[in-house]
Design a protein around this nucleic acid. Structure first.
Lengths: 195, 195
DNA sequence: GCGCGACCTTGCACCCGGTGCAAGGGCGTC
DNA sequence: GACGCCCTTGCACCGGGTGCAAGGTCGCGC
């Protein structure tokens, strides 16, 4: 209703497809759902599906465009202390909490119900890792090893917390798990003395 | 020559296919080479290719069976101190050095020449991560978060070192890079006090 | 109001990775 | 020498992903 004004309409179909994808996959499992099924359920064509999402997994895990914008802002607002790892942890903590309207739990349940998915869990948050990667590259441009370690370790913490988390109450809340995960990992600059 | 004795013959075709795959991909790039090309170059059929390798990437990155055995031995021989992270680092260091007959460099060059590959670099050493994952699970069975952090962080160190390394002399040797990477990351048990 | 251009949708044809099946051939064994 | 196992291969098929071209719709300037 009202006039969707193109851009709004586009966002609407985007969400329609993602919703359909998540629903169907949650019902039948990833492999048992074809792109065609999803497209049909969303009321569009197969070809249109690929106009919106480059791959089948993307339809499940790509972030809502509005959320993606907020993530970018978050990265831009990140603190810049002497401790790059601490700064990155700050970003990580910010990533999840604000935008969560339950989709995180849905995805976690997906992974739980269909183990085939665990391998996607990594690539799942690829967009997050990409954002962190560019951040790290800008942060320590003269030390690529350090930069890669930072994003890699943060990614490891994120996915460890995500996989350990049980949204239906078996464990602590996700943010607490993530805190613990981040707290038990340290990435020091190459020259620093450890322990 | 001699009588290949079935098992030996099998190993031989396995290596033939992997060699063909690596060679072709190094020449033309991953996407420009089809499974059919590889099979033909290895003197077998497309179908046979899939008898040996489950996926196209696997043909490039699956470890030589003999090497895989050695890796398993390595994991079994791993030390068991109070410091799980240190033990895991020991395993990591052992992973690469012994088996390296240049294939590591070849693969690194592949990734360098065809950026499309960087995303495979992670899954590339998936078998290593799998080995580490089962190790970690046995090592800290009561703390899944910690177990996942261990393998995740180790994986991050491995792939950071791998991606930073330039086999043609631009940087330090791979094992030194890996040492530095492992040294600058710490994973402590959840309860421990940091810093 | 008209017309034009940009964008969006869709169908179609195609490529290629991956799998099940079933037939055929070679090697090892009893 | 015969039987059985494994290995190979072709064939047919599914499904993900892409290029292309036609048609429709929205928005905008005139």
């Amino acid at each position: 209703m009202a006039e969707p004004s193109r851009e709004a309409h586009r966002l609407q179909t985007w969400r329609g497809i993602q919703a359909a994808a998540i629903r169907l996959v949650a019902e039948r499992g990833f492999t048992a759902v074809t792109v065609e099924d999803v497209a049909a359920a969303a009321g569009t064509s197969r070809r249109t599906f690929f106009n919106y999402f480059p791959t089948k997994v993307a339809a499940l895990f790509d972030p809502d465009p509005e959320l993606a914008d907020r993530l970018q802002e978050l990265v831009d607002r990140a603190p810049r202390t002497d401790d790059a790892w601490a700064d990155l942890c700050w970003i990580c903590r910010g990533f999840v909490i604000p935008g969560d309207d339950g989709t995180l739990a849905v995805r976690r349940r997906l992974v739980g119900d269909f183990p085939e998915f665990t391998e996607y869990a990594g690539s799942a948050h690829r967009y997050v890792e990409r954002a962190m990667a560019t951040w790290a590259q800008g942060r320590v441009p003269d030390d690529p090893l350090h930069a890669r370690l930072l994003t890699g370790a943060a990614g490891a913490a994120l996915s460890a917390a995500f996989l350990t988390w049980q949204p239906d109450g078996g464990t602590e809340e996700f943010d607490r798990l993530l805190d613990r995960a981040l707290a038990s990992v340290r990435v020091d600059p190459p020259g620093a003395a450890q322990r």
